[in-house]
Amino acid sequence: MKFKQAFHRLFGSNKQKPAYPQNGMQADKSEMMQKMLTMLSNTQDVELTCDEVFAVLDQFAELAAQGEDVTGLMPLVQHHLDMCADCWDEYKVLESIIQNVA
């Protein structure tokens, strides 16, 4: 049961789920443009890199699991996760592990 719950949490409501390969992989031109413009709109002068976020991801995930306001405590980490689908995926998996295994 826990596994199923984790599965749905992981793949049922991932707000930034990347577009994995599928038939007709190329997206509509304006859809691609919208994705890029959304990223531009959210771009900040200072952003953390993937390595910097990875260094604190365990701490961030534990704090989030404890119900702490991680967006307020670690805003740059949260922003990077909102911008980077790879890091976001890794965070969501780690979050599931903390909730179900750790």
Partner: peptide
């Protein structure tokens, strides 16, 4: 020591796993 040691280890495992899974999934694209 800013998290549980096991969370830190899981983080490393998750990175390794997703890196490999992405490679497998996207290698033909």
């Amino acid at each position: 020591g800013r998290s549980q040691f096991t969370t830190w280890a899981h983080k490393i495992a998750v990175r390794a796993a997703l890196t490999e899974l992405r490679r497998v999934r996207w290698r033909e694209v």
